[in-house]
Structures are given as structure tokens and as C-alpha cells.
Design a protein around this nucleic acid. Structure first.
Lengths: 163, 163
DNA sequence: GGTATCATGATATATTGTAACTTCACTTAG
DNA sequence: CTAAGTGAAGTTACAATATATCATGATACC
């Protein structure tokens, strides 16, 4: 069961980063804790999402799942499941890309920061509680009660810069 | 000519905040500096955007302009103009709302932070160079060259909270 | 005035997202 | 065991957002 450890920028805490089966297992546990079922369909969607490697649109997922399951799956169903995942913290929506990524540590709740490469489409997820809490505070200072900070940086990743 | 002054959070510099005719004038100047024309159509789109009062979709603008100009304006024309505006820093795109807002100080280039109320749809724009540069630095630390930070906070504004 | 260039119009189509209702599988009370 | 209830997924339809292409009109510049 592959588990690696990831020390975040501020070292405020460490995370289990799950991969492959371990991630799927963590996701299933998380979802069932919420009182939701872990159906074959949901497993397939999560699998497609987790193995996609970069932010995937609902339609990307629908296509992928259609293939692996051998029959047509409507985008509509995928949306329902993705919404469920986002609410249960199994997945995140990348607003600036109209796409979704699997959350690699479904157990812990975070404001997160995405770096999205406009060249290769890859997204990396970083945690920096100092920054995110700064944003929340700034919002509060403006009389705003922050529910969901969206922090995404469009740019070019190291790989694509060096090419 | 109504001009007010806005001291930002970090007091790193002040902005002219333009309104009404003054804003339109500033926008026109900015666009012509870029070597672009200030046409009636563009003026009408800018006007609609600036007077909308909250983030407006391209289709909202198209409808509004259709009315004021007395004839059907297609969304695609509006998209073209909005793209132009965004590139020239006359407008900003609110990613998490698929919508646009007029930039109240077209003269100066900023990473900006939007607070979007999920209840009333209002968006307020704050500048906090400490935060935005923090985000850029974090991206840089991950080998990323940041082109365009997107920082948006979904939540509830003071008005809607007190109701 | 003629022509090159840019702005807009018109039309079509792609992509993303919701809604309403139906069907299916499973559970549980009777 | 059967019928009613429940939640998941399917089906269909459509709304909202976004882009592409080619035609037409306006403007600028010679």
C-alpha cells in the first residue's frame, strides 16, 4: 500500500498523500463516513478522475468511464457524482478550468492553492495555510464571511518552461 | 467629474477610483493608448458592464446592449470586445462566476482579489499586494512561473449576513 | 477614390451545466 | 413473500457559456 508523506510549506502539519489503491480506499472510507454509498459507478468515476493525471472535465470523465464500463455513461450522471465528491471533499473543482481533480488527502479539510500550467494542462496542488488564512482574513476585514476561497495560479510549470 | 480616492490595505499606493463619465473616459484613454479604437459598440459594452453593478456574463451584456442600441447584438461580438477589454486591463474576468466586471482603475496593473457574495451576486474587489505577491512567490517556489493569479472568495457579504 | 485593415454581423456549432422525470436495485414493514 | 419506500443511475431535453468561420461594413491611409 503506497503511502508517501508530504511536508507542506509552512510545516503546520503533514499529510498522508494517498495513491492508487490506497487513495481509492481512503475515498471510499470518507464517503461512507458521510453516510453515502460507494457504488460501482462512483468507484469508476473516482478511478477515472484519480488516474486522469490532470484536471478533467465532467465530459472527459464521462467518456473515460463509458469506455472502461463498456457502455454509454451520460455526463449528467457524472456531474451528480462529482458534486457529491466535491461536497464530501473527495474532489476539488478547478474553477478557472471548469474541471475537477481528485483530492489526495480526503481526510483533511483545506483551503487549497492550484497551480495550473496553461501549456501542458497539469495542475499541482499546494497547501500554504499562511496564505489561505491571509485571504480569509482580508475577506473578513471587508465584512465578508468567506465560505470557499478559490486560489488558482495560471502560468507555466517548470517542465514546460525548460522546454 | 467624480473621482474618489481609495487607500488600499497595505498602503503601498493609492488609486484613482473612477466612476461614471470619468471611468468611461479613463477606459477610452487606456484603450486608445493600446492602439485600439474606441467604437460606439465598445463604448456601449463598457457602459453596460460598468453600470451593471455586479459581475455580468457576456450574455447579460449582449442583452443589455441590444436594448440600449435598439437592435440585436450577438453574444460573440460581446465576447470579442470583452476579451479585448480584459487584455487591455479595462475589465476583469471572474472565473468562478463565468462573468466580467469593469476595472475601476484601468491605469494600473494589479493582481486582484474578488469577494463574491453567493446570495446577492455582488462582487467587491480588494487589492492586497502582500497577499498576491505571497501567492506568486509560493508558485515560484514550486517551479512555476505565474502569469495570472486568480484569487476569488465565495461567501456572503456583510449586507446579506445581517439580513 | 481605392484599397488595405480592422470591427462587427450572421450563422453555426462546441462545450459546460441543470432540470424533470423514469427506471432499476435494494431494503424493509407488513 | 410481497408491496411500498428509498436512493442511484438512466434518459431526454434544454439552458448557459464559449468559439469558429465567413461575410459585410466602417475606417484609415495612401
Amino acid at each position: 500500500m503506497p503511502i508517501s508523506w508530504h511536508k507542506n510549506v509552512m510545516s503546520q502539519h503533514d499529510h498522508k498523500i494517498h495513491e492508487g489503491d490506497s487513495l481509492t480506499k481512503a475515498a471510499r472510507e470518507r464517503l461512507t463516513e458521510e453516510g453515502e454509498q460507494w457504488t460501482e459507478m462512483r468507484a469508476a468515476v473516482f478511478d477515472a478522475l484519480a488516474s486522469f493525471g490532470k484536471p478533467a472535465s465532467a465530459y472527459d470523465i464521462a467518456e473515460s468511464v463509458s469506455i472502461t464500463r463498456g457502455r454509454r455513461v451520460a455526463a449528467n450522471s457524472v456531474y451528480r457524482i462529482l458534486d457529491l465528491f466535491v461536497n464530501a471533499n473527495l474532489a476539488r473543482r478547478v474553477e478557472s478550468a471548469n474541471a475537477y481533480v481528485a483530492n489526495q488527502h480526503p481526510g483533511c479539510l483545506h483551503d487549497c492553492i492550484f497551480l495550473i500550467c496553461d501549456t501542458c494542462g497539469q495542475a499541482v496542488h499546494i497547501d500554504d495555510d499562511r496564505l489561505t488564512s491571509g485571504v480569509r482574513q482580508a475577506a473578513k476585514g471587508a465584512g465578508f464571511s468567506a465560505q470557499r476561497p478559490v486560489i488558482e495560479v495560471r502560468g507555466t510549470c517548470g517542465e514546460c518552461t525548460s522546454d
